[in-house]
Structure formats: C-alpha cells, structure tokens
C-alpha cells in the first residue's frame, strides 16, 4: 500500500492537482489540523493517525479553495461519504477532485485524549466504510480497532423512551445553550448554501437571536435540512462550543431515513437524493 506522502507528492509534481488538502500535526501528538499543500515539499508534513478528526470535504465547496483549481483531498470513509453526497447534489464534479482514501483505523472523540476504547468516536464503532467506497487512490493499512460502547445510540434510545413533554423539556434545555455561533453549520460539509435560511431576512424565517424561540427553531430547521443528507461525520457536534448533543438529532434523522426509505446518505453518487425523489409507495399512514 502506498504512503500518503508519496501519493500526494506524485499528484502535485505531475501537475494532476494544484493542491492537496490533508492533515498536519499541531502542538502535541494528539492533535492535528487541516492543511492545504500547494508545493510538493509541503507534503512532508502530512500525517495519518487516530487524531485526524476533521472532515476535509467541507473545504471542497468553499470559495477560497475552489479558486485553487483541481484539488486532491484526503478522506476517511465517512469523509468520502460526504464527498459522494456533494457529488450527488451537484455541488462538485467527480472529475474536478482527486480523492485519496485512507484505510481508517478509527479516530478519537476529540483532541488531546488517548486513543482507546473509551475515547474512540461513536461513529467509528460500527463503521462499515473503514475502506472508503469512493476513492481514486488508497493509502494505509487496516488494523484492529478498539471496541467500545455506542453512548450516543444509548442516548437516542433514552430520549425515545421519554414522553413528549419530557422530550420537549430535554431539547429546550439543550437548545437553550446555543449561542448561535453557527460553528455547526460552518463545520458541516453539507451545509454549503450560499445564504443560510437563518441569514435570510426578507422575510426572516428563523430568528437570529439566541433566545429560546430562536434557538429552538434554528436547531429544528438545521436538523431538518440535513435529514437524509447527514452522513454522520459528527463534525457539528465536535465544533459546538456549548456541547449541544447535535448528533442526537442528525443520527435520529438518518435512522428515520433508513427505516422509512431504506436510504443511506452518501453511499451512491449516482442515486437521486432522498428528498429530491419520491416513491409512489411512500408511507402515508399519518395522512388522513
């Protein structure tokens, strides 16, 4: 299996791409940050380890990056799903990017913690895309990963078990923490709208104030706009400075999409999107 540096260097020197988006170590050994290499020698800083948390697909739709021309991007299995979803939604073209897939051995929940069964990210526990489905080159080798308990799923089940009133109270409290910094939106690879619904002011559908009402509506609509689109990279939750358990919403929506339509986001770049298509046999028990 090829080494990331060799692959990236080859892409840059041959001129196949103008830039490679990857990870470099930052600060201590348990932290990385995204980095855009434009010169072959920049590639030497690239690392692949258990702390490459960022989903680099978020950069592909950004104006500052698309200016660079054709880019290569390092993608874990979940990141490759995001790229697939972006292609599905016609935001990027397959031929404009080069995906360097990595055989992923799991990542941590956050930086600065050890990689072990306690700290492994929930999304890695039952991961079915440790080898990315969509990639132009593949690097790294698979190894055993620690197993752990999927706490978030347990939380979802916990919320489901509550009655409606308790659920409302729970989410009202959680959402009330929101400060409207929109880190969740900006960190999300699929939140690429040029103007977000919350920034639209004529009329103002979603209030920008961080009040209970504004927060509730914002988090509700964010979850809905990602329904059937969220690929579960969980970057929103990691980015949230107020520790709102956003995955409780996104994952629940993905579960609904699976139950209702047997749909998994980001698995087939040629498939129609979930809300962009329909089936005559869709469930309508709830409609009178």
């Amino acid at each position: 299996m090829d080494d990331i540096k060799t692959v990236a260097k080859e892409l840059l020197t041959s001129g196949k791409v103008n830039a490679v988006i990857g990870y470099i170590r930052y600060g201590n050994d348990k932290r990385t940050k995204p980095f855009i290499a434009q010169k072959p020698e920049d590639v030497d800083k690239f690392v692949i380890n258990n702390f490459i948390l960022n989903n680099l697909a978020v950069y592909l739709t950004r104006k500052e990056v698309s200016k660079l021309g054709k880019v290569a991007v390092i993608a874990k299995g979940c990141d490759a799903k995001a790229i697939t979803a972006l292609i599905q939604e016609n935001q990027i073209k397959k031929e404009d990017i080069h995906v360097i897939g990595i055989n992923c051995n799991g990542v941590t929940k956050d930086f600065d913690i050890d990689f072990n069964s306690e700290n492994i990210a929930g999304k890695c526990l039952n991961c079915d895309v440790r080898t990315p489905k969509l990639c132009d080159s593949l690097v790294g080798a698979l190894a055993d990963i620690p197993s752990g308990e999927d706490l978030k799923l347990k939380m979802i089940r916990g919320v489901e078990a509550k009655n409606a009133e308790e659920r409302w109270d729970y989410f009202e409290d959680e959402f009330n923490k929101c400060i409207k910094c929109y880190a969740c939106r900006q960190a999300c690879p699929l939140c690429y709208c040029e103007q977000c619904i919350v920034d639209k002011s004529i009329p103002r559908w979603i209030e920008s104030s961080a009040t209970k009402r504004g927060n509730f509506s914002w988090n509700l609509i964010r979850a809905f706009h990602l329904a059937g689109r969220c690929i579960g990279c969980n970057e929103c939750e990691r980015a949230c400075p107020m520790d709102i358990p956003l995955s409780l919403l996104n994952r629940k929506m993905a579960m609904i999409a699976k139950d209702e339509f047997n749909y998994d986001a980001g698995t087939d770049m040629n498939a129609p999107t979930l809300v962009g298509s329909y089936d005559l046999k869709d469930n309508e028990d709830f409609i009178e």
Binding site: V159, E160, K162, A164, E165, E166, R167, W168, D169, Y170, F171, L220, A223, F224, A227, G228, L249, K252, M253, I256, A257, E260, F261, L274, V275, S277, Y278, D279, D282, N283, F286, I287
Partner: peptide, 14 residues
C-alpha cells in the same frame, strides 16, 4: 416524503 421526515422530527423533539 418531506412530511414523513418532518412530522417524525417534530414528534422526536416533543
């Protein structure tokens, strides 16, 4: 299709 998702989301939020 949208309503299926939306009414389940509202239900989940209480």
């Amino acid at each position: 299709r949208r309503w299926i998702m939306f009414h389940k989301l509202l239900d989940y939020l209480g």
